[in-house]
Nucleic acid binder design. Structure first.
Lengths: 141, 141
DNA sequence: TCTACCATCTGTAGTAACTACAGATTCAAG
DNA sequence: CTTGAATCTGTAGTTACTACAGATGGTAGA
């Protein structure tokens, strides 16, 4: 609205959906530049909104803060090396897929146990039995 | 091998696949009982192997340590209330499914970006474009 | 003018579930 | 007697925030 476009941290928070404490945290760890001040208060411009938005979206895609830092560097570093970005994304994608696979393994066991419990055909408790399995002798394969 | 079956922490670690530091950590937070000592060294019995195995398997299913504590209580508390176990598992299952859904959302965007990059039909960098999208005005929907 | 309130400030500590030391002992074997 | 492996205690670091406590500043209403 204002011609200058300068906003305070609260407004930046509202526009990006990013918690105020988190914004200050990002600043502390150097993910966001030290902002100028209006008196004692931090003052942000249009480009700060963009940068924080970038960070937020990268976080939503599951990138770690270190990866976000790298992405920011690649995005701002003159000729943004798309190949490097691609590699970072591909490596992260691999990680995401592994986590999905892990969770799906858990999902199967849990769903089976709950189903077995609901069916009520087993003598004991299906989940406790699954967890107690191998208690006699836990030989690592 | 020994008639008593008493083992040290290293052997417990080997049998359960659980790190020694982690075993001591579990003891500190009360997940495992304070073991007896042979001199200054912790001494474990068969049932400790079983209990730690239970904890490990529960962790592999993604239960938090607090949930594991609850499960241990339900398992050991006389008439183990299977219904309570079921509810805990069902609630955790819901959580696991939400996490899978989150990761799959990430997976889709990442895979699309990498694919678009490999295709090389776009002018800019697909991922950076996706992350920068909305930088002009980040309106929360 | 006084007072209340709101946003902001700094700095620290807490969260989950480990992991990684440093530095001291102790046991058994050669 | 010395060496090495295993264990001990205690503390600090990790990730990405979140939650205060206590101070300060500017504005708005009575």
């Amino acid at each position: 609205m204002a011609a200058s476009g300068a906003i305070q941290i609260g407004e930046l928070s509202r526009r990006t959906g990013c918690n105020i404490e988190t914004i200050r945290y990002y600043e502390r760890i150097g993910l966001l530049p030290t902002p100028s001040r209006r008196g004692r208060f931090r003052s942000y411009a249009r480009e700060d909104v963009a940068r924080l938005g970038f960070v937020r979206r990268a976080r939503e895609l599951g990138f770690t803060l270190d990866e976000v830092r790298a992405l920011l560097g690649l995005a701002n570093g003159g000729e943004s090396r798309c190949a490097d970005v691609r590699d970072l994304a591909a490596s992260h994608l691999k990680d995401v897929r592994e986590r999905i696979a892990d969770l799906e393994r858990m999902e199967r066991v849990l769903a089976d146990s709950v189903r077995a419990c609901d069916a009520g055909l087993e003598p004991g408790c299906p989940l406790l039995d699954a967890l107690g399995a191998g208690s006699r002798d836990a030989e690592a394969a």
